[in-house]
Design a protein around this nucleic acid. Sequence first.
DNA 1: AATACTTTGTAGGAAATTCCTACACGAAAA
DNA 2: TTTTCGTGTAGGAATTTCCTACAAAGTATT
Lengths: 214, 214
Amino acid sequence: MIGRRKIRLYVTVGQRMLRDSLLFQLLLNDEVELVGESETGVDTLNRLGAARPGVLLIEENLQDNDGLTIAESALSLHPSLSVLLISDTPVSTGRLAIYLEAGIKAVVSKHQPVQELMKTLLYIRNGQVYVSARHNAAERMPTALNAYRALSRREQEVALLMASRVPVRDIAEQLGVSCKTVHSYKDRIFVKLGFERLPELILFMHRHQHGATS
Amino acid sequence: MIGRRKIRLYVTVGQRMLRDSLLFQLLLNDEVELVGESETGVDTLNRLGAARPGVLLIEENLQDNDGLTIAESALSLHPSLSVLLISDTPVSTGRLAIYLEAGIKAVVSKHQPVQELMKTLLYIRNGQVYVSARHNAAERMPTALNAYRALSRREQEVALLMASRVPVRDIAEQLGVSCKTVHSYKDRIFVKLGFERLPELILFMHRHQHGATS
DNA sequence: AATACTTTGTAGGAAATTCCTACACGAAAA
DNA sequence: TTTTCGTGTAGGAATTTCCTACAAAGTATT
């Protein structure tokens, strides 16, 4: 029972660079339909009516107002709207409670990976509330490392090579298997890690190898 | 004479969400090789030596220090490094002068589109300084509108349909031409507008049609 | 006006990619 | 010991990407 109809998305993010890059990311999913965007809170309120979004993705701190206030106004006008707030800092449980109280469906912080946004979007699309797993730092690293462990020997080999941008053709040759096989591994890797595009794998492998920044 | 060897890139951006989405964007270009990333200035200075990047992409405001300071330290240790600063606000000419004085190769503000980043990166890769065209707001909108006008009739039709996620197959049928032809239009559209992926076109068309935010 | 260069509409070929499906074999679970 | 699961391997179909082509219309140049 997966929500079938498209997600009508409205995005309110002040800085163009972030707005664009989030949108590029989200629009890769063909269930996402962009119905509007704004840089400010008032502009958002003005346009919401015409855009009729199902989900409002809004920054916590806007130039003119704070996202919470705008979200509350928006909700009073369009009660069926699902609001996803993007906070600047990791959200404390207390603060989260306040948000949920206000009718916001989920909060994602800018310190979380982008993929969380998409995941969250899919969760709240039908009005459910979504509280992300670890709002507490601690157990984040393991996710990545375990994920790597979950790959089989061959998959790991291929992941490594692909992350270095070695062409499929060459990987096949090096491993002595057919290109088709390499593609199979690729598919499996992407499924296992939940990736869609090469850059995600490159970043993942880089982080895996350089232990660092999570 | 296009710089052939890969761009060894180091990225220092505090918030994971922005860092990831910028990287996803930049890594789509296969000339970009990620050699390191940090959230903070000191961490950056610690790792730069080992990573040996050609370009350092660094935020102006970091938690622990400001990007300018870090960039200066980095430059004194690695004079051949090209630094690209990401500023929070549009940069005034005066401020820009200060940055250039410090040896920074280019500044891009978070209010500019992501694509500017990539463009700038390509410009400064070989050590040149790059001062982006419009640091003054005014003549931005036209760019987008003119770009659309630059498309031929058929290209406009296809752009419109593709931005609505109509499958190539259906577009071909609707226009009464072959899929191959539609692909040709697609290619031309992307070349003319300088796009690489569908989301860019979707966003472009959305903005074109809703005049707005640009 | 006549010749030359550019854009537009149209499409084909080759290679690569995506999305499925298949299938044997060893390992693990029932 | 059957059944089930993960892994190594690969094939097919449809789509996409990247080029190339080419005639007719349009623009520019001499």
